[in-house]
């Protein structure tokens, strides 16, 4: 411990700051849950306990439709982004090929690009592409489910790829060589050695992708069609019109969904750590 510094910067100041930060981070979330059970019609005031607002959710068909769109978009885009992201991670970490550097740079951009810019890009692209398809082939397309999925995959490939690459970089390449020394075909080496080893990274990437897909408001708002809106975009438009106790209840449901995903990723990290130790004892013991 560096007592020299802690003597100067009093320990109690650091501890107070720590407590304030934690309260700042968690109080809003906890209070939101509390107020979702308040009987008052004004969302920020306490008026006794009720679960009435959750009951109203089940009657709202518009809400249910947007939930189902959100879930479908998240699942389809995550599946596509996970497959494509994992393939690019393997290519970038394990192979040299022409255009590798360009591809690497291209995969960094979606991570750092502002939401609004990405949204603008996708809107302009689809409107141009649809105009082109209409005038050349006479195919009339419009924005909807597919455009949302395509846009989500476009930013999620990069995130999956980064997570999987970190996993591959920390992996022992000699295990794959050992497999090929033992006359495993390339496919067998991949299927029985590489894939089980990178699986936690792939799963972690998929969890991140699903979280980002369920989080997105800005890009989706730009590429959604009239009939296909996701839950966050719908809730966002509701909040702008005015807050209601029902929105409190919807928010808590979204909160619970994201907390389940967090629990998944934290659990994955821990399982990951313990499995790593196990592999040291019995190399290749996974199947």
């Amino acid at each position: 411990m560096s007592e020299t510094i802690t003597r100067r910067l009093p320990a109690w100041a650091l501890r107070t700051n720590g407590a304030v930060v934690l309260i700042f981070l968690y109080a809003p979330i906890i209070l939101l849950v509390v107020f979702s059970f308040s009987a008052s019609r004004i969302p920020g005031q306490w008026g006794g306990f009720t679960s009435e607002w959750y009951a109203t959710l089940f009657d709202d068909s518009r809400l249910q439709r947007t939930i189902s769109v959100s879930v479908k978009v998240a699942l389809v885009s995550t599946l596509l982004a996970t497959v494509l992201g994992t393939m690019s991670a393997l290519a970038l970490e394990r192979f040299k090929f022409r255009g590798r550097k360009v591809f690497d740079a291209l995969l960094y951009l979606p991570i750092i690009i502002p939401d609004v810019t990405m949204a603008v890009m996708m809107l302009m692209f689809f409107s141009q592409a649809f105009d082109l398809l209409d005038s050349v082939f006479g195919i009339g397309l419009s924005k909807g489910f597919a455009t949302i999925v395509v846009s989500h995959v476009a930013f999620n490939i990069a995130f999956v790829s980064v997570v999987v690459r970190a996993r591959i970089a920390g992996m022992d390449a000699t295990l794959e060589q050992a497999a090929s020394d033992l006359y495993a075909t390339r496919w067998q080496a991949f299927r029985f050695v590489t894939l089980p080893l990178i699986a936690p990274g792939v799963l972690g990437g998929a969890l991140l992708a699903i979280t980002l897909s369920l989080d997105d408001v800005v890009v989706t708002q730009f590429v959604a069609g009239p009939g296909s809106t996701t839950l966050p975009v719908y809730v966002f438009s509701l909040i702008r019109k005015g807050v209601t106790p029902t929105i409190n209840a919807v928010s808590v449901i979204m909160l619970v969904a994201s907390l389940i995903l967090v629990a998944g990723s934290v659990g994955l990290q821990r399982a990951n750590a313990s499995r790593g130790r196990q592999q040291l004892r019995t190399p290749g013991g996974t199947s």
Partner: peptide, 15 residues
Amino acid sequence: FWTNFLVRNYAWRIL
């Protein structure tokens, strides 16, 4: 950081 971004903003709207 992992919890829904819109919900986190909405919480402050209520607070």
